[in-house]
Design a protein around this nucleic acid. Sequence first.
DNA 1: CCCTGATTCGC
DNA 2: GCGAATCAGG
Length: 233
Amino acid sequence: MSWTDERIEKLRKMWEGGATASQIAEELGGVSRNAVIGKAHRLGLKARPSPVKANEKPARPAAPPRKAKPDEAADGGTIEETPKAEAAPAMPERAAAPTPAPTPPPPSAPVEPTAEKPANPQPRIVSVGPGGFLRQGPGDQQQPIPPAPPRRLVPAKPSPEIADKTSLLDLNDRICRWPMGHPGEPDFHFCGEKVNPGFPYCVEHCGRAYQAQLPRGARRPPPPMPFGGPRVR
DNA sequence: CCCTGATTCGC
DNA sequence: GCGAATCAGG
């Protein structure tokens, strides 16, 4: 399978819609989950909550055990990729804690003698919360901080694929729970019609579920049962 | 174990 | 450019 424009389009849409790489791969067909991820990255669209992307490290601890390069047999004394400790021997790498400096030394040593950076009258921004509002440190409390959250928080949509259709979670006492299709299949859902009062199904499906007992010999062949009848084993 | 996405690297 | 192999967190 090749990456046609349509397939790329679909990949984009689903990826941004929140579908997992596996779902996308299955939907597209003919490609693996890795292929989808690889393509997504090559397309430039990544940045999605990854389970293994919590911390960030400048170094590259991951990916040494692969396969030794064919060349590099003769050591020319060239040490590639020397990290170069830079000029920060006393610089702990963990210095970037979320709440490290409760209060910068206010007493002596004014760190801003003159101009240099016109931006500093603003409250120290410690982090950015959901919706884009700004958090401050405990000691940074100041006046009526900014106005208010610039944007409204909107519930994330569950998934682009499953739109309509009455799912198991949608069932209640008032909607018909007659199954449509087979459980486990992608489009399996429930009737969803308004229920026939006192019954678990709508009027139509009550007609299927409850049949008058006909006299012997006058019986019609039974209508198809839900799920297409019991699975024969 | 299963799942997830990220990354590397031979092709 | 592609994707299997691998890593690593949940």
